[in-house]
Design a protein around this nucleic acid. Sequence first.
RNA 1: GGCGAGGUAGCUCAGUUGGUUAGAGCGCAGGAUUCAUAACCCUGAGGUGAUGGGUUCAAUUCCCAUCCUCGCUACCA
Length: 698
Amino acid sequence: MKHYKRILVTAALPYANGPVHIGHLAGCYLPADIYVRYQRAQKRDIKFVGGSDEHGVPITIRAMKEGVSPQQIVDKYHAIIKDSFEKMGISFDIYSRTSNAVHHHTSADFFKKLYDAGLFEEKETEQYYDEQAKVFLADRYITGTCPVCGNPNAYGDQCEKCGSALSPEQLISPRSTLSDAVPVKRKTKHWYFPLQNYEEWLKQWVLEDHKEWKNNVYGQCKSWLDSGLQSRAMTRDSSWGVKVPLPDAEGKVLYVWFDAPIGYISATKELTDKWEDYWCKEDTKLVHFIGKDNIVFHCIIFPSMLRAHGNFVLPDNVPANEFLNIEGDKVSTSRNWAVWVHEYVKDFPGCEDVLRYVLCANAPETKDNDFTWKDFQDRNNSELVAIFGNFINRALVLMHKLCGGKVPVFHNDIIDSTDQQLIADIKQAVEKVTRNLEEYRFREALFEVIELSRKGNRYMQEKEPWIKAKKIAEGGEAAERAQKEIDNCLHLSLQLTANLAILINPFLPGTAKKILHMLKVVEKMLDWENAGSLKLLSVGYSLRAPELLFRKIEDSEIAAQIEKLKANAVDKATVAAPPAEDKADTLVLKPEIVYDDFAKLDLRVGTIDAASKVEKADKLLKLEIDLGFEKRTIVSGIALHFKPEEIVGKQVVVVANLAPRKMRGIESNGMILMAEDKAGKLHFVKPEDAIAPGAGVS
RNA sequence: GGCGAGGUAGCUCAGUUGGUUAGAGCGCAGGAUUCAUAACCCUGAGGUGAUGGGUUCAAUUCCCAUCCUCGCUACCA
């Protein structure tokens, strides 16, 4: 095990085009915060950095839709997100943002260094261009009708209604979201980062040197590395982002995924002049907390960038969590199926720790997990209120009733095996919690804390000080003995309470503070080195009156939340089947052409002689078409609409002079014309009566 | 289609480098108790470990196939 002198923890930069929901918290911010708070209690040199990711196309689109500038969008959400984190006690040392100057300089310098070292490939490709707005269009800027589900507002990279991954070419009647113009192709130059050059090194570094990474992380990296890496464009045509620091790069910015992780470096720079200690010294332990959607960027791309740059340390671990579902359905921002953090803190003021508890106790550490409001209520009422809170409350109440409000003496002469067992349990719990926290098993660690308070309840049940109190009235030797036993029970219970404050602190910092207040001790007591000690509270010290740590959560509150969730959600059915009248959008005509444009097409009638599914392709059929004068193979993406056997013998119209194109290794010579109905179903375009194959169409 | 992660008690989830009766919490049933937010504590019922094969003295754990869920990814000229 390597020895580290300092730790740098990062949490994924949330994208500033919306607020954060509880899935974000459970996925990375909460585990990161728990880890950081624990390490701080260990008095280790640790920094916790984060910030808003404010570049990229979706933000510009949102800005356009709302008629404001991108900066206004990110200002708005940056503030909301930052506030949500503060309220939930996510204790960043700095929460920065990628739109500020430090970050622009840092990421531009980073790019320039790789450029100067000749580590990029320059490539010219054809991209869609909006001649009216005079800008290149990223896939997201192009909308049109989804060829799969008929949604008229599908994006060029994805249809958000049916989830199909698309490319702009597939859209029916594509148009620019900027000007509504029909996009045209134009050449543009970009800088590509050749990830394949780092493949061998990555295989060693990830697959051999980091076998201890979590299963889900390791497996996904292996999947990527086994399938081979390719160059990725690290620049984009856009006006919003970090300008590419080269003379011939007007209108080009860094790809948001190039600049976002560099945001960790920028934020550290802002935080401290000693930022290089955390980024450039080998004895720094760098840990990235992320959700599973970010694994490839943090385990493959960013490390390759850091390696190429050469001056930076690489992550020691990337403990990515899986996803948190809500009430059985996966979180969807477009359907508004989510529990938003800024709304939670309003609806449940003072219950921030309860959410922290539930999200940690049921964190998706090994697989996707489900959040339900019922579970939220159950865990609060039966674990926080009935076990943890109850133990501390009864210890303090009894102490006030039976020991005059002061920490009683511990009488060593009557210590018994029950006492000794409790003492052993405390020490063992400290060990377990510590080990689990070090190894990123936060759920297990938290369970051990609650388990310890459960043992406290058991201990008290066995000692029954309230029964012994009855003997005191009798007077004499029996009374004296009873008081000593009561003293011992409550002395240990109070020391346990103090220990619970230390152990619960990383998870529920607000709760730990409340306990400190009741015990009238200073925050210093929470130092981790004090965990396991039985001398945290001095004998004779008077304590405050107990207050309840948690309140019960009523059925009505839960019902209201479920109601709210369902009322605000966009109906699934609405999403899946867009209203038919929206198809009117397809009425927008393409630009006018002249006869010669049309005459270039050679359209022929053909007969399908044979059809078969293309291996390893969901959507492709391989068709043998008889054109009379010759037979051809045409590959067509219609497998989802037709079974091969039901289309053999049918006549179709073929674009016969289309350039050949290979798909899945099969050369396709031409294309079949199809018409799409309102339901998105495809129909062949064919002559009314069967005619000889090869007949021209004009 | 390929790859990855999962499929374990009514529910939410652990665990097993293969080894005697597979765990926890909640829920449920019964008991005990009254210091405590009708809380705590004890006892109990509940699982053909997705399905079907194989390796082994022994598999829930290893191998193969199949089915299901989630994620990444390919194909629509």
